[in-house]
C-alpha cells in the first residue's frame, strides 16, 4: 500500500518531467507553419504537386464537345451547349459553364476527357463576394468555338501530364460578367434534364 503510494509519486514526477522535456525541446525546433497567404516564398498553387485536384479549368481550344464530363459529373456541375452548323455540318461549342460552388473536386470528369481539355488546376482559393461569380464561364455568350477533332495520327495537344497548369489565375482576376437570371436558367435546365427518375 505504502509502496504503491510512493510509486505513484515517482511515476507522476518522472512522467511530468518527460513531458516537460518534450515540450521544452520544441522551443528550439522549427515550426511547420506556412504563413499563408502573404509570408510564403512562392504562391501556394505553385508549391502544390501537379496531381492536386483544384478548381476545374477548361481549354476550350481542344474540347471535342463530347459532353462526357457533363454526363459523368455526379452533381451536374458542368453545363455544356453545342450547336451544329446546318451547312458545314460542323460542331460548335456555344456554352461551357462550371459551377465551382457545386463542384466537389472529385476528378471524375477529368478522367473521361479524351483530350485533357478539362482538368484540375492547382488553384483552390475560390473566394468571392457573390456566389454567382463562382460560375466559371469558359465560352462568352455569343461566341462559337469549333469543336476539336481528334486525329488518329498525332497526339492531342493536351497539357503535358505532371506539370502544373495555372492558366486559371488570369481568368479568375476578371470573372466573366454573368446575370443572375442566366444562372437560374442553367439551374432550371439541370432540374429538367436531371437523370434522377424515381423508381
Amino acid at each position: 500500500m505504502l509502496k504503491q503510494y510512493f510509486k505513484n509519486i515517482k511515476n507522476a514526477s518522472t512522467s511530468i518531467f518527460e513531458g516537460l522535456a518534450v515540450t521544452l525541446s520544441y522551443m528550439v525546433r522549427k515550426p511547420i507553419t506556412i504563413q499563408y497567404p502573404d509570408r510564403i516564398e512562392k504562391p501556394l498553387p505553385e508549391m502544390l504537386p501537379p496531381t492536386f485536384r483544384g478548381i476545374l479549368e477548361v481549354d476550350t481550344g481542344i474540347c471535342t464537345v463530347c459532353m462526357a464530363c457533363m454526363k459523368r459529373c455526379p452533381l451536374d456541375t458542368i453545363y455544356i451547349e453545342s450547336e451544329r452548323d446546318p451547312e458545314t455540318r460542323k460542331n460548335y461549342l456555344t456554352r461551357f459553364d462550371i459551377d465551382v460552388a457545386r463542384c466537389m473536386v472529385c476528378g471524375l470528369c477529368t478522367e473521361v476527357c479524351p483530350t485533357g481539355a478539362i482538368r484540375h488546376s492547382t488553384e483552390f482559393d475560390a473566394v468571392t463576394s457573390d456566389v454567382i461569380n463562382l460560375v466559371m464561364r469558359y465560352v462568352q455568350p455569343g461566341d462559337k468555338i469549333p469543336a476539336y477533332k481528334v486525329s488518329k495520327e498525332e497526339e492531342p495537344p493536351g497539357v503535358p501530364q505532371n506539370e502544373p497548369y495555372c492558366r486559371l489565375k488570369k481568368q479568375w482576376d476578371a470573372p466573366a460578367p454573368l446575370q443572375p437570371d442566366e444562372v437560374r436558367g442553367a439551374v432550371r435546365w439541370k432540374k429538367q434534364t436531371s437523370k434522377q427518375e424515381g423508381r
Binding site: F17, V22, S25, V28, T33
Partner: peptide, 25 residues
C-alpha cells in the same frame, strides 16, 4: 541536476527525431 536533466532530455528528444535546432520565427 534536475534542470540539467531537463535540458539534456530535451536535447535527446531533438536528436531522437533527427531534428535540427532552429530558432526560425
Amino acid at each position: 541536476a534536475i534542470v540539467a536533466g531537463l535540458i539534456g532530455r530535451a536535447w535527446y528528444n531533438i536528436h531522437a527525431l533527427k531534428d535540427r535546432i532552429s530558432l526560425e520565427n
